[in-house]
Amino acid sequence: MTTAAPVAADALRERLSRLDTAALSDAMDSLRTPPCVLPGITTRTPGSIACGPAFTVRYRAIDDATSFHNAANYIDDVPAGSVVVVDNGGSRTCTNWGSLLSSVAQHREVAGTVVHGSVRDVLETRTAGYPLFSTDVTMVSGKNRVVLDRTGAELDIAGTPVRPGDWIFADDNGALRIPADLVEEVVRRAEAVERTESRIREAALGGARLDEARARFGYARPWEEGGEDEQH
């Protein structure tokens, strides 16, 4: 028996870009997965989407304040198409991302950044259209306050694990993590959820009762597309 080849990252990204976090969350609920939401993460570039495999970055507070400490140099190592996921423990005291990093990341075709902590230079990043998401915003620099602990580590984002290579999707609703080994099935189910909800909406706007449209098109299990119009 042959096994289907994994879907290429570019094809997954294209399909994901037509979805949203709501449909993806419903799909993951149907699989009864561990927590997927990255709590407290908010868009700083409204209307943008960050979608791609996670490149993980972890910070720690400095131990030595007697000499200059740059916050981090890692951006040149981030592969194009990745989403940078930064963990500074949700800190509101200093930043871990600013417009310089946004400019370089955008130039290198990084897919976006999610920061469990604070960012700054929001206007510049928003104007450039770079997808940026964070717990908070402050103007205070991370220099001489935090340093890079390591990249490529498993992170704990307020209770949600993020491993390198897990897929990250963030939009105006927030941010979530999709385990790498489930991403193809999650996308398939999320697409089915979208189709089911489109059929319900079309029927309701066409004059049907909403409760009847939901029952007709399988609202209780939308990832199965089990409505009466579905052909088997």
Rank of each mutant, 00 (worst) to 15 (best):
A65Q: 03
T45K: 06
V83E: 03
D63I: 02
R58C: 14
A72S: 14
A65R: 11
V37D: 12
T45G: 04
D76P: 00
T45E: 05
T33K: 00
I41M: 04
R44C: 05
D77A: 14
R44L: 09
T43H: 02
Y59C: 11
T43A: 08
T33L: 15
H69K: 12
A61G: 09
I49N: 02
L38K: 06
I75N: 05
R58Y: 04
T56Y: 03
R58S: 15
P53V: 00
C36F: 07
V37H: 15
V83N: 02
Y59E: 08
S48V: 06
D87E: 14
D77M: 07
T43K: 05
C36D: 01
N73C: 09
C51A: 13
G47L: 09
T43Y: 01
T42M: 09
V85W: 02
P46K: 08
A72E: 09
A71S: 15
V83Y: 03
S48L: 03
V78G: 03
A80I: 05
N73I: 13
S67E: 14
I62P: 04
D87P: 07
P35W: 03
C36V: 13
G47H: 11
D76Q: 08
Y74N: 06
P39M: 05
R32C: 07
G52I: 08
R58V: 10
D63F: 08
S48M: 12
G52L: 06
R60K: 14
P35V: 08
V78W: 02
T33G: 00
D63T: 15
T33F: 01
T42V: 13
T45P: 03
P79E: 01
V86E: 14
G47A: 11
H69Q: 12
T45I: 06
P35L: 01
F68L: 10
T42L: 14
V84P: 04
S48F: 08
P46L: 07
A54C: 05
H69A: 10
T66N: 12
P53Y: 00
D77E: 13
C36S: 13
R60N: 07
P46C: 08
A54H: 04
T66A: 13
A65C: 00
A54Y: 03
G81A: 05
R44D: 01
G52N: 04
